[in-house]
């Protein structure tokens, strides 16, 4: 009986979270309508106009940059550790990678603010500006989408890598051996046999990494520049959903602003929950057994 109550408590906690968000954020969402809230790009507290687009955009861009950077490295790293490196290397390297996962986000923010941002300001952003690509234009301030994207990439790298390693380990040895026996090089065996088999699982790993990137608050708040605008250039300052909640929730005056912030929270909640469900289903399908919670 006691156990059932404790077990059910998990459900109660989840229900309370959803109910609270709906109670505070629901009315304002219902009033403006989901679609007009999402597509409105103006966030003007003075005039009580609240649009979610700048934050959605910022969240997507920073997470996108993070994935673009982290995915190849994570998969490369996972392949290196499972398929190429001697087992000794694997056991030595696995510790620092798990260390990376355990570093608190505010410490990443500290590092981002005092190491990465100055580095981006000079020389990285001026160099990138020479490419004349529209995403690399404007003043090299350092704080902005790019800085946030890079910090996020570092933060989600261990998540994707560790799940990718697990997934790669489930690939039957016979597949690999068959390819090698047919005269394939090691890379060809990976490309033709291992990767196709592991693809679903790696997509799942990527989605879990994305989920972490979308919800990351402190490190992003510290380096993104906190400006509710929409810019094409990655050098420009932006804003994300969790960052605006962190900055404005404690001071939101009036039901409207509080409601709008809670509605942003609700959006974030819904997106991360959907992403997690999808990712876990994918990873679970690959593991074909009760899934373990990723650290």
């Amino acid at each position: 009986m006691v156990l059932t109550v404790l077990g059910a408590a998990v459900l109660v906690v989840a229900a309370v979270i959803v109910a609270e968000l709906l109670r505070v954020g629901g009315p304002s969402l219902a009033q403006t309508g989901l679609w007009s809230f999402v597509k409105n790009s103006v966030w003007d507290v003075t005039r009580d106009v609240y649009g979610a687009l700048p934050f959605i955009y910022g969240t997507l861009v920073t997470s996108g940059v993070a994935l673009l950077l982290a995915l190849p490295v994570s998969v490369g790293l996972a392949l290196f550790l499972t398929e190429m490196a001697p087992p000794r290397v694997r056991s030595i390297v696995s510790f620092p990678i798990s260390l990376l996962a355990g570093i608190p986000s505010v410490v990443y923010g500290l590092w981002g603010l005092f190491v990465l941002v100055p580095l981006l300001r000079r020389p990285v952003e001026p160099l990138l500006a020479r490419t004349h690509l529209p995403i690399f234009t404007g003043a090299p301030i350092g704080l902005g989408y790019l800085a946030a994207g890079i910090v996020l990439a570092i933060m989600i790298l261990p998540t994707i890598t560790s799940i990718a390693i697990e997934v790669l380990r489930t690939v039957p040895g016979s597949l690999r051996e068959a390819a090698l026996a047919l005269g394939a090089t090691r890379w060809e065996a990976i490309r033709t046999a291992v990767l196709p088999y592991a693809r679903t699982g790696i997509i799942g790993a990527t989605m879990l990494g994305l989920g972490r990137a979308l919800g990351e608050t402190m490190a992003v708040t510290m380096v993104i520049g906190n400006s509710p605008t929409i810019r094409a250039s990655l050098f420009a300052p932006g804003y994300t959903l969790p960052a605006v909640i962190a900055n404005e929730f404690a001071e939101a005056s009036g039901a409207q602003q509080t409601g709008a912030l809670a509605a942003l929270g609700l959006l974030l909640f819904a997106v991360t929950v959907l992403l997690n469900i999808a990712a876990r289903l994918l990873v679970r399908a690959v593991r074909r057994g009760p899934a373990r919670v990723a650290a």
Binding site: S227, P228, Y239
Partner: peptide, 9 residues
């Protein structure tokens, strides 16, 4: 808290 046309926060 106004809707800033420019800048970093």
């Amino acid at each position: 808290s106004v809707n800033w046309p420019a800048g970093l926060g």
